[in-house]
Amino acid sequence: MQLSDRVTGGVLVVLGGLAAWSGSRLPAVPGQDVGPAAFPMLIGSGLVICGALIALGIGRSFEVPEGEMPEDAPATASRFHGLRVLIPPALLLFYMLASEPLGFLLTAGIMVFVVAWALGASMRLAVPLALVAPVFVHLAFYKLLRVPLPDGVLPAPW
């Protein structure tokens, strides 16, 4: 997801503009000069300025080139490889949608298995981990911390 400064700067300009514009449309407090609109408008304009400067490449000389970790091995660099980074947020979305109907244990098991598998774990590691980790997390949060984790189709036996 390495984007050019032009793209990220442009996004910031648009975002700042939208924030300032929609901020300016907020209702004022009767009898006051400054209301809820002032702050978003200020930030929005700041973002527009910063975004424009970034897009123009000003300030790049300050950036410290980082000793980046080696990127993925070329053997696995397929077209969809870059999309793997979206697995964790996708799984969080899955958790939000599925934990109520499926229950915590099942949802968590699937999540753990998918991440382990995507990171190249063998079945001998991924399967036991997916079976054990959710149980421990459930015990800790449900029993110790009393978080109401959903039962779903597979209620925990405790």
């Binding site: 799984l91 968590a108 999540m111 990171l119 774990a121 959710p134 997390v137 978080v147």
Partner: peptide, 19 residues
């Protein structure tokens, strides 16, 4: 191995945020 730590971290993120 990282493959055994990261899944648990992600699970804790979900449960922790929910909690």
């Amino acid at each position: 191995p990282r493959a055994s730590i990261m899944p648990v971290i992600l699970l804790l993120c979900a449960v922790g945020a929910y909690a």
